[in-house]
Design a protein around this nucleic acid. Sequence first.
DNA 1: CTAGATGCAAAGACTTTGCGCGACC
DNA 2: GGTCGCGCAAAGTCTTTGCATCTAG
Lengths: 145, 145
Amino acid sequence: MSQRRLDQITQALKERGYRLTPQRLAVLGVLAQSPDHPSVEEIHHQVRRDFPTTSLATIYKTVHLLKEMGEVLELGFADWGSRYDGRRPYPHPHVICTQCGAVVDHELAGMADISREVSDKTGYSISHHRLDFFGLCPRCRATVK
Amino acid sequence: MSQRRLDQITQALKERGYRLTPQRLAVLGVLAQSPDHPSVEEIHHQVRRDFPTTSLATIYKTVHLLKEMGEVLELGFADWGSRYDGRRPYPHPHVICTQCGAVVDHELAGMADISREVSDKTGYSISHHRLDFFGLCPRCRATVK
DNA sequence: CTAGATGCAAAGACTTTGCGCGACC
DNA sequence: GGTCGCGCAAAGTCTTTGCATCTAG
C-alpha cells in the first residue's frame, strides 16, 4: 500500500525527467511510508540510516521539488517548522496534538461544498484549502488532565 | 466599531497589569483597524508614521504578547511569514489570494459541528482549528486570466 | 559522456534575546 | 522611584544558495 504510493511518486519523477538517485529514493521511501508527518530533520535522520553522508540540503531540495510537483503536502506551522505528508498529497484535515505534536489525518466529506460557498460569497476562485484541528490526543489528555 | 475593538484590547492589557505605552497603543491601533491582516513589517511601517523611532523588536514583542493573551490571531504561512488578525481573534476561515496575497475574512457556521465530529472520530479533545482557502481574488483573476 | 544531483559551507530571511537607558504608574 | 518596556545589536533558527565534485542515464 505504501509501496504503491512510492511507485506513484517515483513514476512522477521519471516522467518529468528527474534522476532517481539513492538519496531521493530514500526520501521518497520515508515520505511514502510515514503516517506521522515527519519534519525535514526527521526525514534526514531516517535517510541517514541508509545513506550516512546525506546532507540536510539534499532533503530540503528533494522535499521542495516534491512540493512543487504536488506529490507532497507541506504543513507549515508558525512556531513549529513544517511537517510533510507524502501519503495524501491533496487537501484534507489534520488533527494536531498541542502537547506532543502528533499529527493525524482525517478524511472529511463536504469540503467541496463549503469551498463552493466561499467562492460564491467572496468572488475568489478557490483552488485549494487547508484545515487543521488542534487539541489534545487521547494519550496526552490522560497524562496532563 | 474598530474603536470598540481597540478598547477591548486596551482593557485586556490593563487588567493584566501591562503598561500602555505609546508604541503599544500604536500597534493595537493598527491591529484593531486593519481589515487586511498585516505582517509585522507592515505594522512596523504604519507605527513608524507616528513614532519614527519604534523598533521592529518592539513590534515582535507586542504582537507576541497579544497572541499569548489571545487578543490577536496569528496566521503563519510556510513561504510567506505571518499575518495578524486583531479584529476577530477567534478561529474563522480566511481566504487568501495566491497571486497578490490579499487576505479576507469569512464567517462560516457549522464548524462547531464538524469539530465535534472530528473529536468523536479521532479521540482528540479539539480546542480550536484553522481553515484557509487559497485561490485568486477577483482582481487578480481578471489580470492573469 | 554530460546534464543534473550531491555535500559542504556560506549566506539569507525572519524572529528572539540581552542589556543599558528611559518612561509609565 | 522602581519596575517594566524600549531601542539597538547580537545571536538563533530554519531554509536556501553557490560551487566543485560526482554520478545516473
